[in-house]
Design a protein around this nucleic acid. Structure first.
Lengths: 167, 167
DNA sequence: GTGCAAACATTGCATACTGCAATGGAAGCA
DNA sequence: TGCTTCCATTGCAGTATGCAATGTTTGCAC
């Protein structure tokens, strides 16, 4: 552990630990807000609903691509969510190969409920944080993300999506 | 969306977006470092290996508890990792009900490989970050985690574990 | 305009993760 | 000795996941 740049390695360790802890908090918040509703959704199902809610109607391939899963996986998830009344299937009138998928009112309602719970809990946490840390934290995190070459995520869409094979 | 404290909500939104993006980076790093090795491990399997590697021999119930999964789930994961030669099963000589589980040399080797890859990639990212942001980021993230009431994670053990039902 | 290639949804098959509910063996205790 | 408790294991079920067909529909080239 004592390489040529020990302080860089230590900084990396500290930073990873810090981001991971914060990440765990967010994940726990997400899980709680999902478990709090009565509809018993899984995380991948919720991700699909969010994509359909925010992105509008898509076909199956497009949906699978947005979720970074195989079309067959997306299809079976659509089957379940459709059976649960949260996703609506329609035939594309222009191209009969395509299936148009959209969230139903019930599906959008669930997304709204979970999002609101999440909002509330995050706001509660941030309110308990020293005020002078908030701005620095945002800047530092954005610098980290920029250094990693990631484009910044839209503030409204904190879904946990965009991770190949992750929830 | 225009409540009594709009700027607090905005701050929460920005912060969530920032932490989530950073979180995505780390998760992507984890996924890449796992996919880069030839052994083709799943994330839950890697979590189990890390627990066995860092925590020493345990019985099945203890292992399941540390991973926050059902004992039957842990058992079948042990089956697979055992078949892959990464986990060793032994009978406890003192109590014949117990099964002693430990990582094999191959299992520890895999953990070391993945950890090193992760280390290297994180270090690379941090090196690309403006120096003056690093300290602020660590402090801010720790403040966030404290506000959420989480105990800080050990810098050496950034595994993604400790999430009930999550990978 | 006919035919071939590409796109698309779908299904079959296999694997992994997950939990709940038995089951059976072993240990501890009265 | 017998009852209770602990522990691993197995059966069953549901979800997620990918790869490899399959069949239908479109689009394009000739």
């Amino acid at each position: 552990m004592h390489d040529s740049q020990p302080q860089d390695l230590d900084a990396a360790n500290e930073m990873v630990a810090a981001v991971l802890t914060a990440s765990r908090v967010l994940v726990a918040v997400s899980a709680r807000s999902l478990a709090a509703i009565e509809e018993a959704l899984t995380v991948p199902q919720f991700r699909m609903l969010v994509v359909l809610d925010t992105g509008g109607p898509v076909n199956l391939s497009g949906l699978a691509e947005q979720l970074a899963v195989n079309p067959s996986t997306a299809l079976r998830m659509v089957d379940r969510l459709s059976a649960a009344g949260m996703v609506e299937r329609t035939q594309d009138p222009g191209d009969r190969r395509l299936v148009v998928l959209a969230a139903t009112a019930a599906g959008r309602q669930v997304v709204r409920q979970v999002t609101e719970r999440r909002q509330a809990e995050i706001t509660r946490i941030v309110s308990a944080m020293p005020v002078d840390h908030r701005g620095a934290m945002i800047e530092a995190l954005e610098a980290f993300a920029r250094a990693a070459g990631e484009e910044l995520v839209d503030p409204a869409a904190y879904t946990g999506q965009g991770l190949p094979g992750w929830s």
